[in-house]
């Protein structure tokens, strides 16, 4: 079953009198349970594509179906609800609220759900346990390391049990050990059946996925399957050993 279907997606920005065509006739589909990396150097339109995939922005032309819903025809409110219950975001800068505890940060998307789950707190605690941060539940984000903060953000992305997890350069602000830990979490989630799209400029990061789409000048330049993805768990262990031997 296709989780995502993109058909001739075009995005053109108009500033002053200059028209910039950022995405050109992009078409691909993503199956449920895939782990896809979208790769490209800066300026190739990968951020724009990621915004469209995340229903944060609309294409100028083309069709986008997410989990059976045609998002292009939806209004702003409907898109907000779609983001709330179908998409989990992980950002490069984490975007956690320092004034709230880690647990509260994880529960943040629940503010905007129609039905507030009765076991919200238990769910959040379970997710924190899944990313290995049970003891940090009452901490403030600024008391955590970067890697820990990004794992809190992943737990937050999962609280509404989304169909799709979208990660935008999730390891961009992390050292290699923390980066490997975060990627290990993504790989574990994917093994559990979660659909993940990871946007990055870094080939080493991209190759942790099962499939890579390479963007060049706003077009799909390459779409290939990775038969043997890199193992983030192994890298994390290797980094840890390196630390020990220092």
């Amino acid at each position: 079953m296709n989780m995502i279907e993109l058909e001739n997606i075009d995005k053109t920005y108009v500033t002053a009198s200059v028209e910039t065509r950022v995405l050109k006739r992009i078409s691909f589909s993503v199956q449920k349970g895939e782990f896809l990396s979208i790769m490209g150097t800066s300026g190739t339109g990968k951020s724009t594509l990621m915004h469209i995939l995340g229903c944060l922005d609309k294409p100028t032309d083309g069709h986008y179906r997410l989990d059976g819903t045609d998002m292009v025809s939806l209004n702003d409110d409907a898109l907000s609800h779609l983001r709330n219950n179908k998409i989990g975001f992980v950002f490069q800068q984490f975007y956690l609220l320092d004034r709230a505890t880690v647990l509260r940060n994880v529960m943040l998307p629940l503010i905007y759900t129609k039905e507030y789950p009765e076991d919200a707190k238990e769910q959040a605690e379970k997710l924190l346990a899944a990313v290995g941060l049970t003891e940090r539940a009452t901490y403030r984000p600024n008391q955590l390391s970067g890697g820990q903060q990004q794992r809190v953000a992943i737990a937050r992305a999962l609280i509404n049990n989304p169909a799709l997890v979208l990660a935008d350069e999730p390891t961009g602000n992390l050292d290699s050990k923390s980066g490997a830990d975060v990627l290990a979490v993504f790989q574990k989630l994917n093994r559990e059946g979660r659909t993940i799209i990871l946007v990055t400029h870094d080939r080493n990061v991209a190759e942790h996925a099962n499939r890579i789409i390479l963007l060049k000048d706003g077009m799909v330049a390459e779409d290939r399957v990775i038969s043997s993805p890199l193992d983030a768990d192994a890298e994390s262990r290797a980094e840890a050993e390196k630390e020990m031997s220092k």
Binding site: D76, P109, I111, N160
Partner: peptide
């Protein structure tokens, strides 16, 4: 907040 699902009204 918008990315996490807040509407303009929220």
């Amino acid at each position: 907040r918008r990315a996490l699902g807040a509407t303009r009204r929220d």
